[in-house]
Simulated assay, not measured.
Amino acid sequence: MFPLKASSNKRFSILRRRIMHAVACSDIDRSIILVFQSRAFLGLLADQFKHLNVIAACEGESEAITALQKQRVGLMVAGDQLKEGRITSLGTRATKIQPNLRMMGILQDPISSHRCTQFHALIADADIGVDEFPVYQGLMAMLTNTQYRSTGILELHAALDLATNSDGSSAIQLTPREHDILRCYSMGLTNREAAQTLGLSTYTVQTYSSDLLAKLGVKNRQKALLKAVSLGISKIAS
């Protein structure tokens, strides 16, 4: 899951030793709960964290909340693609149940990272496997009660800050229907699914979508969401 380059083996060994030392020295409960839609990913993460006590591997928010209500847990690692529920509400509910819980989020859609303020570590899925070993860095942050953001998350936040400080927001005005299309983007709907949701034809949705991308000056949905949120002209539903 986390391929290593020969030149990085030494750094990985050092980080691994630091983690084991942190596990031994930390007074935090060593139990961990994993929350991901993918069973395969759950299995891979359980293997990565085998030196901890993995007490539950859940596919959705409700299942994870039930597990947290039944047993004290020290750590939680969750993805933003869940069988049911959202990582943002999971983080809020989880910390209300167990205020001392330390959490890591692994995000396929990094744009949601600005809403995951409760998480000690946030990692862009695309960063997994790089030489910095972000999952292990995130684990270290949880164990030491510090904060870690992977490279992809930091670059996204920098882009958001740059765009927010620009003067372009007042020049872009979206129609109500274009806001609808953005919300469909944020939900991950295809054009056909968006058409069914909005009661429009697929062709009409495609036309609105093309107009929206042109108005924002971008070429794909991800960049459209990023620019709309960064300019403050759209609030994507949490």
Rank of each mutant, 00 (worst) to 15 (best):
G152N: 06
R221C: 05
L4V: 12
V77Q: 10
S26H: 04
L162D: 14
R102A: 15
P134W: 03
N53C: 09
A46H: 06
S62P: 01
T95S: 03
L212E: 08
S38K: 08
S238H: 04
E59D: 09
S38P: 01
A24M: 08
E155S: 12
A224W: 01
R16Q: 11
A124P: 01
A237V: 11
L122Q: 13
V205H: 00
E155W: 01
L213S: 07
L200C: 13
G168T: 09
L226R: 10
D180E: 14
A224I: 07
G152F: 05
I128Q: 06
L226W: 07
S238A: 02
I233C: 03
R177T: 15
A78E: 07
D29C: 08
M76P: 11
A171P: 04
L52D: 04
C116A: 14
N191K: 02
I111F: 02
F12H: 13
T204M: 02
T146M: 00
Q48G: 01
L15R: 10
D109T: 10
D131P: 00
I181F: 01
D167E: 07
S230T: 12
S234K: 01
D29R: 01
Y148E: 06
F36Q: 03
S234F: 15
F2A: 04
A6I: 13
L42T: 02
P134N: 05
G85I: 05
T92M: 05
A67G: 07
K219C: 07
A228Y: 08
V135Y: 12
D29F: 02
T202L: 01
M142Y: 06
I19W: 11
L4Q: 15
T66W: 00
G129A: 09
V35N: 03
G85Q: 00
M103S: 14
L174E: 05
M76Y: 02
I172R: 06
C58P: 05
